[in-house]
């Protein structure tokens, strides 16, 4: 379970303080894929980074009683001059994962072949994302964080990723942030709406979508 308690996040900009999250309270239970709808700049990515622990809250707490992945497809932690295999070892080590097992899974899943032994800065961005995605699947988290469904790689890989998520439905929970209703419908069973620093939880995905359409409409009218 993941719980947010009075979570606040401010950013200092040269135009003063910008409030991104304003006393957010929420519970993300395991077993139900949850979507977070929000318009561009609503703070969806920030929320995901806070949940993942990549960023620290200004105030409030995030309770994590589960293992949580980095945002899917995040490859910024790779060192360009190290090979795919060396980067893989580093990530496996910091997550206390079994290196041979992780290697075997990633090799099979990503089909990177001989690229595994080439420096990551020779990779295309799709290949990097594939490696990162394969790694997060190999480490087997309780929660997977997905930003805008980073549809990595070619169609074949996309299908493979989707099948992998479907296969794990029983023991892995997805948290998906997106501004696209279609994406949320595709992956999630419950949803929340992020608007003006507040997070509104809905038990029913349709009511979340209605709420989201509502704020979009109000905004166009103004």
């Amino acid at each position: 379970m993941i719980e947010l308690r009075e979570l606040c996040k401010n950013y200092r900009t040269n135009k003063g303080t910008k409030v991104v999250l304003d006393h957010v309270n929420a519970v993300f239970p395991r077993g139900q894929n949850i979507g977070v709808l929000g318009r561009n700049g609503a703070g969806k990515s920030t929320l995901l980074r806070l949940i993942g622990g990549a960023e620290l809250p200004t105030s409030g707490q995030i309770l994590r009683r589960a293992s949580i992945s980095w945002p899917i497809g995040f490859s910024g932690g790779f060192h360009g001059s190290l090979t795919g295999r060396e980067n893989l070892r580093f990530i496996a080590r910091i997550y206390a994962a079994d290196i041979p097992k992780v290697t075997a899974f990633v090799e099979e899943f990503t089909e990177l072949g001989e690229y595994m032994d080439m420096p990551v800065n020779t990779y295309s961005s799709g290949m990097k994302a594939k490696l990162a995605f394969g790694l997060s699947m190999a480490i087997d988290f309780d929660y997977y964080l997905i930003d805008e469904v980073t549809a990595v790689g070619d169609e074949g890989f996309k299908a493979k990723s989707k099948a992998e998520f479907a296969r794990r439905r029983d023991h892995s929970t997805l948290i998906v942030v997106s501004h696209s209703v279609a994406t949320i419908r595709e992956y999630c069973s419950i949803a929340a709406v992020l608007d003006k620093g507040k997070l509104f939880m809905h038990d029913d995905i349709n009511s979340a979508i209605a709420h989201y359409h509502d704020i979009n409409r109000t905004d166009t009218r103004q």
């Binding site: 990549a54 910024g76 990530i91 910091i94």
Partner: peptide, 9 residues
């Protein structure tokens, strides 16, 4: 900097 995205680092 990018490594700080892994919360245990």
């Amino acid at each position: 900097m990018a490594l700080l995205a892994y919360p245990q680092v």
